[in-house]
């Protein structure tokens, strides 16, 4: 179902914008996904939900996603249960 959804989505982008999703401008990407999101709002098992689920996991388990948003600490060496949060600092991530 997921792969079929990707194909359908690609075809839709091609039909509407004349090129696949990856080639669209940021604004058109936002519109194209927005259409999917709106159509899926009440459907927990829709293509959009799955796409979103795997995208979030894929991004935040990728090196680029982790390093862009977090302070990666694979070897913390100690445990502090109450560290004061520093405003603006990137949160720690461990694995």
């Amino acid at each position: 179902m997921f792969l079929q959804g990707l194909r359908t989505f690609s075809v839709r982008c091609l039909e509407k914008y004349g090129m696949p999703y990856a080639g669209l401008s940021a604004e058109n990407q936002r519109i194209a996904l927005g259409v999917e999101a709106e159509a899926a709002c009440d459907q927990p098992h829709s293509f959009y939900r799955r796409l979103r689920y795997w995208t979030v996991i894929g991004y935040f388990t990728s090196e680029v996603g982790v390093r862009a948003h977090f302070d990666y600490q694979p070897m913390p060496a100690h445990f502090n249960p109450a560290e004061k949060v520093v405003l603006g600092a990137r949160p720690w991530i461990y694995v």
Partner: peptide, 10 residues
């Protein structure tokens, strides 16, 4: 408790 977080994985 938003002023606090943990460091390390217990």
């Amino acid at each position: 408790f938003e002023d606090w977080t943990v460091f390390g994985q217990r």
